[in-house]
Amino acid sequence: MAPPGWTGSRQAGAGFTVSGSGDIAPVVAGAMGASKRIEEAISVGSFAAVIAVGVLGALFITAEYRRGLIRVTLAASPRRGRVLAAKAIVIGAVTFAAGIAGIAIALPVGLAKLRSGGNPILPVTALTELRVIAGAAALIAVAAVLALAIGAVLRRGALTVTVVIAGIVLPYLLAITALPADAADWVLRTTPAAAIAAEQSIPAYPQVTAVYTPMYGYYPLAPWAGFAVLCAWTVAALALAAFLLHRRDA
């Protein structure tokens, strides 16, 4: 294989080694060409949805604290861990269903708009398309559960919403706009924003020379590994919330 960054052809004995991007290698998204990835039709929308469900998930618990309803809730079902689990299941299921519906509408509409604008769409298998849709909806649903858990810890609506958005949306935004490459890579491996990898539809090809950065839709973690990072944060937040719910007065 050619050294990275090397483009062109080279003759060694009877064989040719050709490297670069063009007709003999898969087309990639990025700086070259107007090709679009399917997730470009939904990525902004899925972040808008993350912000909306962040507010929803936060209010689902902080509004109870604000109104004092939480005391009634905990009087009615004194097993507090179970209350938290029930809330997590409800908010997760509702936002996942809403997310699937929203993405399933947004994807074909967005792709049609991109095509009518003269942008070729990079083809993907049906399975990959399904994974992108499910991944985006799962990102939305887990973000809602994370907001619920942080809300149970902080018990302040505005603070909770800010922490959720600063944890999921802001690191991604920084990674694609402001941060140097190393820091962008680190941020998309460690923060909850790593879950955006679940929407990546085009893999990085080692034989194709291209700019494989988050700005062009290539993330440092594999799709499900990135999603697992968000899940790990959410499980940790839920555990802390359950612990504090037991420890503190309501």
């Binding site: 912000i51 936060a58 609506g157 800010t162 958005i165």
Partner: peptide
């Protein structure tokens, strides 16, 4: 509403 307001502001800024 504080929570909704901060969501709108940060959405306006980040989206």
């Amino acid at each position: 509403n504080s929570a909704a307001a901060i969501g709108i502001v940060l959405g306006l800024l980040f989206l």
